[in-house]
């Protein structure tokens, strides 16, 4: 039951991203607005990452960077993490110690710190 629910949710979210990448960023039926931003006017650490992601899909690095620069740090990290946790055989081409250090508790707290700092900085 849980797995079906997770699967369906993933399909919905991915489907949404695919539709969004087809209709484009400026379309009337485009992106879902963040309720947190609508109500508080505060920008989260990830605010603009949907738009940045769409710009990246069309190789517009400058626009993507302006929307949300933190993706340029976190996306490579997340891709490495995805390989480390899900494709161990691929990771074995890289130094094993690197993976343990990159995805250790200390590293996770560094990421957390960066995210919170970025949230504060962008709202000042």
């Amino acid at each position: 039951m849980g797995k079906i629910l997770i699967g369906m949710s993933l399909i919905l979210v991915l489907g949404y991203l695919i539709v969004l990448s087809y209709v484009g960023i400026d379309s009337e039926i485009g992106a879902i607005n963040c309720p947190l931003y609508s109500y508080t006017g505060l920008e989260c650490a990830g605010c603009g990452s949907q738009r940045a992601f769409l710009h990246l899909l069309s190789f517009e690095y400058r626009e993507a960077f302006l929307q949300n620069p933190i993706l340029f740090i976190l996306l490579p990290y997340l891709i490495l993490g995805f390989v480390f946790f899900y494709f161990k055989r691929v990771w074995s081409m890289l130094p094993e110690r690197l993976g343990i250090v990159l995805f250790s508790s200390k590293a996770a707290f560094v990421v957390l710190f960066i995210l919170i700092l970025w949230t504060i900085v962008r709202n000042i």
Binding site: A45, G46, F85, F109, L115
Partner: peptide
């Protein structure tokens, strides 16, 4: 860890931050 960071930057920061705090304690 990867999932909770994804959640934080692509969707719901408040939930995501809590998830990262837990994720960071596992190792």
């Amino acid at each position: 860890l990867v999932e909770s960071i994804l959640l934080t930057i692509f969707c719901c920061q408040p939930l995501g931050i809590v998830a990262i705090i837990y994720a960071a304690q596992v190792e």
